[in-house]
């Protein structure tokens, strides 16, 4: 379970988060939608402390921290409990697919190499990448890289995985294979917070959809409610615009 309370973040003079509240229950998949610049990615990065929030508190499972009290120890504890999948994959370029998965198991979780390899192969198999285990990222397609990145996050067995627009950098025909893997993790009750522009995917996979606008979560509700009966006018506008975008015919 993660609970975000009153999180604020500014960069120099730009206020990005104006007090975000959001809860993700254990085993729940929450899709975070909203226009560019609404603060979705920044929120995600504040959760695992790639950015330091200015105010507020965040609870991840049994660990709670406050914005004004973040030490090296806090970061360590937070990152132990969170996994992240980046838009641009972020695979270690100097490591093979398998090494990408096993690296943190060995270096951070101090597992024996043989055990790490066993875990690594298990998760690569799960995302359908076992036959590319010895390939370096340079030799993988975007979709393949992202699947390895998801395997890397899953293998660490975090309490939540944060997805930062996992399919935005992919060629259209590669999107499905990645969404498929994410759906699979969702079906297995992995707790996940996904920033996405794939509305159909959000509708199909998410237990809850949260709409962010101008630095706050304006509303969060089950997909059917949020997409078809939103409470706020702003949410409705955003969703209408999105639906419209796909109704053009050429």
């Amino acid at each position: 379970m993660i609970d975000i309370r009153g999180v604020q973040k500014s960069f120099k003079n730009t206020v990005v988060l104006r007090g975000v509240n959001l809860t993700v229950e254990e085993g729940e998949t929450v899709a975070l939608i909203g226009s560019s610049g609404s603060g979705k990615s920044t929120l995600l990065r504040c959760i695992n402390l790639l950015e330091t929030p200015d105010h507020g508190s965040i609870t991840i499972g049994d660990y709670k921290f406050k914005a004004h009290d973040i030490s090296r120890h806090t970061k360590k504890e937070v990152r132990k409990r969170t996994g992240m999948v980046f838009q641009n994959f972020g695979l270690f370029e100097n490591k093979t697919a398998l090494e990408n998965v096993t690296e943190a198991l060995i270096i951070v979780q101090k597992k024996k190499k043989a055990e790490a390899i066993e875990i690594g192969r298990y998760y690569l198999d799960k995302v359908g990448m076992i036959n590319r285990a010895d390939y370096y990222p340079i030799a993988l397609s975007g979709g393949q890289k992202q699947r390895v990145a998801i395997a890397r996050a899953l293998a660490l067995n975090p309490q939540i995985i944060l997805f930062d627009e996992p399919t935005s950098a992919l060629d259209p025909e590669l999107v499905q294979e990645v969404l498929h893997v994410i759906k699979q993790a969702s079906d297995e009750k992995m707790t996940m917070l996904i920033v996405t522009h794939e509305m159909d995917f959000a509708r199909e996979v998410a237990d809850k959809v949260a709409f962010m606008d101008e630095g706050v979560v304006l509303e969060a509700a089950p997909p059917e409610k949020l997409f078809f009966h939103p409470e706020h006018e702003r949410t409705k506008q955003f969703i209408d615009r999105y639906m419209q975008r796909f109704s053009y015919s050429i």
């Binding site: 695992n48 790639l50 090296r72 970061k75 360590k76 990152r79 132990k80 969170t82 996994g83 992240m84 980046f86 641009n88 972020g90 695979l91 270690f92 370029e93 690296e103 943190a104 270096i107 951070v108 979780q109 990145a149 890397r152 996050a153 660490l156």
Partner: peptide
């Protein structure tokens, strides 16, 4: 690429690692 450092952090490594 700065992303390499961030993804190393995201899997729990410290700066030295």
């Amino acid at each position: 690429d700065k992303g390499q450092l961030e993804s190393a952090y995201s899997v729990g490594m410290n700066t030295t690692q």
